[in-house]
Lab assay of single mutants.
Amino acid sequence: GSLMYASIFGNVSAIIQRLYSGTARYHTQMLRVREFIRFHQIPNPLRQRLEEYFQHAWSYTNGIDMNAVLKGFPECLQADICLHLNRSLLQHCKPFRGATKGCLRALAMKFKTTHAPPGDTLVHAGDLLTALYFISRGSIEILRGDVVVAILGKNDIFGEPLNLYARPGKSNGDVRALTYCDLHKIHRDDLLEVLDMYPEFSDHFWSSLEITFNLRDTNMIPGSPGSTELEGGFSRQRKRKLSFRRRTDKDTEQPGEVSALGPGRAGAGPSSRGRPGGPWGESPSSGPSSPESSEDEGPGRSSSPLRLVPFSSPRPPGEPPGGEPLMEDCEKSSDTCNPLSGAFSGVSNIFSFWGDSRGRQYQELPRCPAPTPSLLNIPLSSPGRRPRGDVESRLDALQRQLNRLETRLSADMATVLQLLQRQMTLVPPAYSAVTTPGPGPTSTSPLLPVSPLPTLTLDSLSQVSQFMACEELPPGAPELPQEGPTRRLSLPGQLGALTSQPLHRHGSDPGS
Rank of each mutant, 00 (worst) to 15 (best):
G126S: 03
L129K: 01
A131D: 12
L132I: 06
R144T: 07
G145Q: 06
G145N: 06
D146F: 02
V147S: 12
V149F: 06
V149W: 04
L152E: 01
G153N: 09
N155I: 02
I157Q: 01
I157D: 02
F158N: 01
A166G: 12
P168M: 05
N172C: 12
N172M: 14
L178V: 10
T179G: 08
T179E: 06
T179P: 02
D182R: 10
D182K: 13
K185M: 14
H187L: 12
D190E: 08
L191D: 01
L192V: 09
E193Y: 06
E193L: 06
V194H: 03
L195I: 07
L195Y: 02
M197K: 10
M197F: 10
P199G: 05
D203R: 10
D203K: 08
S207D: 13
S208Q: 10
E210M: 05
T212M: 05
T212Y: 01
L215V: 02
M220H: 11
I221R: 10
G223A: 09
P225M: 12
S227L: 12
S227N: 12
T228W: 06
E229G: 09
E229K: 08
E231H: 11
G233I: 13
F234T: 11
Q237E: 10
R240A: 13
R240H: 11
K241D: 13
S243D: 15
R247F: 10
D249W: 05
T252M: 07
E253A: 10
V258Q: 09
G262W: 09
G264F: 04
A266Q: 10
S272H: 13
S272R: 08
R273L: 10
G281A: 11
S286R: 04
P288T: 06
E295P: 09
G298W: 08
G298Y: 15
P299S: 12
S302K: 13
S303W: 13
R307M: 10
P310T: 03
P314H: 04
P316I: 08
P316D: 14
P317N: 10
P320G: 03
G322V: 10
E324L: 13
L326C: 07
E331K: 12
E331C: 09
E331W: 06
S333D: 10
S333V: 10
P339C: 04
S341H: 13
F344R: 05
S345L: 06
S348M: 11
R358L: 10
Y362E: 08
E364R: 12
E364G: 10
P371A: 10
T372W: 11
N377M: 05
L380Y: 06
R386K: 15
R388K: 11
L395Q: 05
D396P: 07
A397F: 13
Q399I: 03
Q399L: 11
R400E: 05
R404M: 03
R404Y: 01
L405G: 02
E406L: 07
L409H: 03
A411P: 03
Q418E: 08
L420R: 03
R422W: 11
M424S: 12
P429N: 14
A433L: 11
A433D: 09
V434N: 15
T435V: 06
T435W: 09
P437W: 11
G438D: 12
G440N: 04
P441S: 09
T444Q: 04
T444F: 07
S445Q: 12
P449S: 12
P452V: 11
P452A: 10
P454V: 08
T457W: 06
D459E: 12
Q466A: 08
E472H: 12
L473H: 11
P478K: 15
L480Q: 07
P481W: 12
Q482D: 15
Q482M: 04
L491N: 13
L491I: 11
P492H: 06
G493K: 10
Q494H: 06
L495T: 11
A497N: 09
L498R: 12
T499Y: 12
S500D: 15
P502G: 11
L503H: 05
H504P: 09
R505K: 11
D509C: 11
D509L: 12
P510E: 10
G511W: 01
